[in-house]
Simulated scan of single mutants.
Amino acid sequence: MELLAINFQVLFAGLALGAIYALVALGFVLIIRATNVVNFAQGDFAMLGGFALVAFMGAGVPFWLAIILALLMMAAFGMVFNLGVYYPLRHRNYLPVIISTLGASIFLQNTVLYFFGPQPKPMRRVFQSPGIEIGGVFMDSQYLVILAVTAIAVCFQYFLFEHTMLGKKLQATSQDKDMARLVGIPVAAMIAFTFIYSAVLGGLAGILVSPILFVSIGMGSIIALKAFSATIIGGFGDVKGAIVGGLLLGVVESFGAQYISVPYKDAFAFLLLFIFLLCRPQGIFGEKISEKA
């Protein structure tokens, strides 16, 4: 019974951690589908969200208002990122855009380092209660918040894309930009909205995980690497694959840390990626594409 409780405890922690990867992975997938390029600054959106919350809290803004302002700031930053990093290179092939996002990532990290310094910043939990215990399994309150908010974000995204005209336009843009433009869809506006939405998702992930990992310059890089791995494991460019891949990655990492090695817990995520690249390179939900002779 005790072993079962421990396994449920590890599973719960892994799902919460995987939910963070899933949120960032969703941002990766949305931009991939909209622009056909990978935004390697997506993890830094999480870092910026965390530091934005630190800045607003440091200015004396109440906690809940600080969260709202941080997310609004991330939305504005998403627009700036679109106009400054992607839009000038929109007619070039994917390589200059990818290099541009890498440069933006380095710039963002060094800018934050200049203003906030290298020391990690602590952040308070959403709820002051440590959590609840059910059947010998302690459920940390912050982990519960992460799972609940991620579930709400996923449901909202499903509703947005499947039941609104904006969502239909976004899907049409991701499938065929030229055809979407011909039927009157403002493609540039749809791509800009995708960057805004992805920045908010990344910022939300950073805000949620900051009480657990602390807010630091490097937090975005490790989250981005695992979230990108999750997009590959789930099926490159697949929305539900990003969610499942992120959750799976978090669970594998959590069980690996529990039963094998805590110092090498980050390696288990990349070991899982390596296994998928060997055995199922198209990912869980990806379609196998035959090579032409």
Rank of each mutant, 00 (worst) to 15 (best):
residue 1 M to G: 10
residue 6 I to K: 07
residue 7 N to I: 07
residue 10 V to A: 05
residue 14 G to V: 07
residue 27 G to N: 03
residue 33 R to P: 12
residue 42 Q to S: 11
residue 46 A to E: 00
residue 47 M to F: 01
residue 48 L to C: 11
residue 51 F to R: 09
residue 52 A to F: 15
residue 65 L to K: 05
residue 66 A to Y: 01
residue 68 I to M: 07
residue 71 L to N: 06
residue 81 F to P: 02
residue 83 L to N: 11
residue 84 G to N: 01
residue 84 G to L: 11
residue 86 Y to R: 06
residue 89 L to E: 07
residue 89 L to S: 11
residue 91 H to W: 04
residue 97 V to M: 08
residue 98 I to V: 12
residue 101 T to C: 00
residue 103 G to A: 10
residue 109 Q to G: 12
residue 109 Q to T: 02
residue 109 Q to Y: 01
residue 110 N to L: 01
residue 115 F to H: 13
residue 115 F to E: 13
residue 120 P to M: 02
residue 124 R to P: 06
residue 124 R to H: 09
residue 125 R to S: 11
residue 130 P to T: 08
residue 130 P to L: 13
residue 136 G to T: 02
residue 141 S to L: 05
residue 143 Y to S: 12
residue 152 I to L: 15
residue 153 A to G: 03
residue 157 Q to A: 13
residue 159 F to A: 13
residue 169 K to F: 11
residue 176 D to P: 04
residue 177 K to E: 12
residue 178 D to I: 13
residue 184 G to L: 06
residue 184 G to K: 05
residue 191 I to M: 07
residue 193 F to E: 02
residue 217 I to Y: 04
residue 219 M to F: 10
residue 221 S to N: 12
residue 246 G to L: 00
residue 248 L to G: 04
residue 249 L to Q: 02
residue 254 S to N: 10
residue 256 G to C: 10
residue 260 I to A: 07
residue 263 P to D: 08
residue 269 A to L: 13
residue 276 F to E: 11
residue 281 P to L: 04
residue 292 K to G: 14
